[in-house]
Simulated assay, not measured.
Amino acid sequence: MDSIKILCWNCRGSSNPRTTGRIRALMRELSPNIVCLVETRADEGRAKTICKKFSKAWEWAAIPANGMSGGIIIFWKHEMGLVTPLAHSRYVLHLIVSNEKPKEWILSVVYNSQHIQVQKSVWCALAGMSSLNLPWILTGDFNAILSTEEHRGGGFDHYSTKSKYFSEFISANQLFDLGYYGSPYTWCNKQNGLARRWARLDRYLANSSWISCFDSYYNKHLCRTLSDHSPMLLTARFFTSSKKKVFRFENYWFEHALCHQKVYKAWNFKTVTSPLHAFAHLTSRTRSILLDKKTFWHVC
């Protein structure tokens, strides 16, 4: 494989035939290696029924919903190598993946509660994974945001305390927000007028060990359909050679019309980590954008 594609979607129930059709369409059109579904609202029986529809091409693991609340399903392609599911609660499903590259890493799929005390317990449980010192990536619906810029409509009071604990979890575990392309919000309450709300409740986070395995990565927020959440597609490309190339900024790049805009975009988002890790992450984003012909040179 020259890249890994991870698709994540809060589908708000997975039993509807239209939703199942949407999942199939995303698998077919985007060719992900891993598909993460949260808030499936599927009990054990329904989860097995849904997963059997995909079992010819995909392996799977699931956490059943509690009534009509929660539920997580992960599908992965056979080529992902040895995959071991691990679950400690109904809020997080982990996959420990052993493959050639990265050799061993962890994917944690989260559907966090809206209740702050439960959120705190989830952050505490997740923190234990960082002690394994393995490449680690997290995705899902965290039901929390990091700053006032990540919501629109209504006041910040609803999010402020959750934001504090979420930020502390990210900082304490030296995680990076992997950013996004597309709409700045992944959730909309679909209300009309002044009652409408938007927020970035879904995202990808990763530690520096996971990020260092890849030459570039980008997360795209897809169109919101059949759910109040947008699907997200993360594409992470491996280094094309065994040795990393030295990055040097070329002065002639200033002659391209969008150079300043792309560099500004690479640096214009908040990181919640130590200054040294934040600087390394921001320069890595700049390198990826400037060296990616598809997103920079072809546009210029």
Rank of each mutant, 00 (worst) to 15 (best):
C51N: 07
Y180F: 11
N33D: 12
S69Y: 06
N219M: 09
F166A: 00
W105S: 05
H256Y: 13
N66A: 04
T19Q: 06
K120I: 00
E44L: 04
N16F: 09
K56M: 14
I34E: 05
N16W: 09
Y165V: 00
D141H: 03
R152M: 04
K5Y: 13
L138R: 02
I34G: 02
S55W: 12
I137V: 05
Y264C: 10
M1C: 13
M1T: 12
K243G: 13
S113F: 02
S216N: 08
H256C: 11
W187L: 09
R237S: 09
N192S: 15
R248V: 09
K245L: 10
F169I: 01
A65Q: 01
A144Q: 02
I63P: 01
W123K: 03
Y91G: 00
G140V: 03
A257C: 06
I145W: 07
P17K: 03
N189W: 05
D157Y: 04
S130W: 09
G13S: 12
F169A: 04
T283V: 05
C51Y: 06
F279T: 00
W187I: 03
I145L: 04
C11E: 08
S3T: 08
K103Y: 11
W198V: 04
N10I: 10
W253M: 13
G182R: 05
M80C: 06
K56L: 15
L132H: 10
Y218K: 14
L234E: 10
V109S: 07
I63M: 09
W210G: 01
Y181W: 13
V92P: 05
G21M: 06
W76M: 05
C8G: 15
V122W: 03
Y217A: 09
F239G: 01
S183I: 00
A144P: 03
E255A: 11
G71V: 00
T225E: 12
H78A: 10
D141Q: 01
A62N: 01
R18L: 15
H78R: 14
W198M: 13
L134R: 11
